[in-house]
Nucleic acid binder design. Sequence first.
DNA 1: AGCAGAGCGGAACGATCCGTTCCAGTGCTA
DNA 2: TAGCACTGGAACGGATCGTTCCGCTCTGCT
Lengths: 209, 209
Amino acid sequence: MSETALPGRRGQAARNDVVILDAARDVFLLDPKAPISAVAERAGVGISALYRRYPSKEFLLCRLCHDGLRRFISEAEASAGEPDAWAALAGFLGRVVEADVHSLTVHLAGTFTPTDEMGADARRANELAAGLVARAHESGRLRRDAVTEDVGMILECCAAIRVEDPVRTSELRRRYLALLLEGLASGDGPDLPGPPPRPGEMNGRWRPS
Amino acid sequence: MSETALPGRRGQAARNDVVILDAARDVFLLDPKAPISAVAERAGVGISALYRRYPSKEFLLCRLCHDGLRRFISEAEASAGEPDAWAALAGFLGRVVEADVHSLTVHLAGTFTPTDEMGADARRANELAAGLVARAHESGRLRRDAVTEDVGMILECCAAIRVEDPVRTSELRRRYLALLLEGLASGDGPDLPGPPPRPGEMNGRWRPS
DNA sequence: AGCAGAGCGGAACGATCCGTTCCAGTGCTA
DNA sequence: TAGCACTGGAACGGATCGTTCCGCTCTGCT
């Protein structure tokens, strides 16, 4: 943040760093297969400005994805400090859905080979999610047949909601997340049908392309 | 069906009709942007066999999409005959999710210009869905702030669930549909947040490409 | 003041991919 | 046996996209 005030070429370069990352997020969120040139156009810069920062499209994608994963982790950590276990889980899901982290991570999977650090972060993310779910279970508010892996699936559901207007998209996602949470909270009904999702079942995408 | 027994070239041609359609469904369900050649390969036929039947990829896509829409309608009509209003809605959703009709219709939208007949069918589909929702409302089992447009959104959510194994995909979709239905059924909680989806809000995709 | 070069825009290139056409072969059908 | 409906798959032409490259601008240092 401190370099935003930098003047001249240096300053513009620093500013471009974030402009490009934002543009890339927007563009690839809308269309994961978008060309690099679309990112440049959106950012209002030339293609060189991109290639000066990232050696290839794959690296940019990887960076974007990893950023999303880190956001996931930081939101989970934030919720770990929330005393009300149910509010912690619900708030976490709400913020991750709001940040649209899942769309990126999921739709970009397979377009690059993940780094070791990402693998470690993914494991940590999973642990944190498991913790949130476990606490919610202890509190008794979460239906007994819910599992950690439901978190990812629910995020997937919400990410699928998309209309043209981003604001409406956000509102609608909140709506269906609320619906899903209502389902997750109701403990007196019958168990959910079929075997629950298994760990790693959703990771088929992660093979290097 | 009667021509399946036909021998020789005629018979093979007739059999190819359905083989090709099935292959196309499978292929485009997995990847909406798959090349035509992938369909031919999957069907075990040459590319000519495809082009003899459909003048272009766009026509094939349109046919596939229209078939899905018709399936949607026929399932809705089937549920219209079910006396229990809640079971009618739930059963309808279950069958449409099972048939994976929504993925096709949704992910193929925009890749072809819809025909007039499809427009009419789409309108009819919407009426039928509205009828199912209205009846469920009258029965009192459906939460009061649910609207017809929720149907499409819920289908979208379920279609987003996808793992490598098709059988597991089906099972998992059933699971999350059940979760959503649980949410739809619980009437004592607070209203869902944000304005509900509006008619036509999801139709942004339908502009010709 | 002047210069070296960091940073940039965007044209150009080469590779890949894909829809469509075309042609030669095959085996019914009449 | 002659014709033809049907087929497989090679070939073509256009489009797309990642990446490179070149010439320019403007800065920060000397």
